[in-house]
Design a protein around this nucleic acid. Structure first.
Length: 281
DNA sequence: CCGGTATGGTGAG
DNA sequence: TCACCCTACCGGT
């Protein structure tokens, strides 16, 4: 379930469990064995996230750079660590708790320069108080690329993944295939502010919920969504089902190799002024 | 058991 | 644009 809120939450929880403490590190699976041995017994200074990247800092300007990719997990558990189960690439242990990293696309030991470079290449992250949405706007406003594509580009905007992309575009009635340059500034500001709220809520609850109060299962008398990520959503992976708002059928298509979901009536196809004709049909 | 799929990203062509 | 990487889970055989 790794979108930006997952990594932000993970950094916070790693801090609580291990921050400022001397920890044991190991690589039961073996693929991070040399690095884990080098860090073993060092003080874990802090953990931080930027977009979907996680940096776990150890004394001596040493950082474990983690990216969970599509299927990675970093589970923190209270109690004494049992023998590792499955492919644990990195285990961090303290007396009180342990954390197991599995399936990550990236797990590298890097220095501060590399950490700064990775963070520096990211677009603004709605979860960071110092984020500047104008940096993203400057890219979006001059781009011919589809809005759905731009929102997923971590150099434009950091932390938004396939679920938040689909949902925030639905919430603002925006066609995902509409070119970035056709967006008005006010619309972008609203999208950004909404992402700030949605991601913060995701950090708080640990799940992705995007439906407004009037569209919750309780409010509408419909069954709750039973899914692997647990949250209530409007269109993500709801293709073929009815839209809660307008009752039309939610659609899906492929955009740059990722599944895209939208409601054709709530997010009508955008037509530029030029193709509309001078005075209607 | 096997194949398909997944909230992501990289590097080759 | 495609092949590929990481792991777990789910459905159909």
């Amino acid at each position: 379930m790794p979108e930006g809120h997952t990594l932000h939450r993970l950094a916070r929880d790693l801090d609580v469990a291990f921050g400022g403490r001397r920890v044991r590190t190991s690589s039961p699976q073996g693929r991070f064995a040399a690095e884990a041995a080098a860090l073993d017994g060092a003080v874990l200074v802090q953990a931080e996230s930027g977009g979907k990247h996680l940096f776990v800092e150890f004394v001596g300007d040493r950082f474990v750079h983690v990216h969970l990719g599509l299927i990675g997990k970093f589970d923190i558990t209270a109690g004494t660590a049992p023998p590792a189960v499955g492919a644990v690439r990195l285990r961090i242990e303290h007396e009180d708790s342990y954390a197991d990293l599995r399936g990550a696309i990236t797990c590298d030991l890097v220095g501060r320069a590399r950490r700064d470079q990775v963070i520096g290449e990211l677009g603004p992250d709605p979860l960071r108080a110092d984020a500047d949405p104008d940096r993203a706007w400057d890219r979006i406003r001059r781009s011919d690329r589809a809005l759905g594509d731009l929102l997923m580009d971590q150099k434009v905007l950091a932390g938004v993944g396939n679920v938040y992309r689909a949902e925030v575009l639905f919430r603002h009635r925006l066609d995902p295939r509409r070119p970035g340059r056709t967006l008005r500034r006010g619309q972008w500001v609203e999208v950004w502010e909404d992402l700030v709220c949605l991601l913060a809520e995701g950090v708080r609850t640990g799940r992705i919920d995007t439906v407004r109060p009037e569209h919750t299962p309780e409010a509408m008398g419909r069954p709750a969504r039973k899914d692997d990520h647990g949250g209530e959503v409007y269109v993500y992976r709801r293709d073929g089902q009815r839209c809660f708002v307008c009752d039309s059928v939610v659609r899906t298509s492929d955009l740059k190799g990722r599944n895209l979901f939208w409601c054709p009536r709530c997010q009508p196809t955008f037509r530029s002024r030029a193709t509309k004709g001078p005075s209607g049909p």
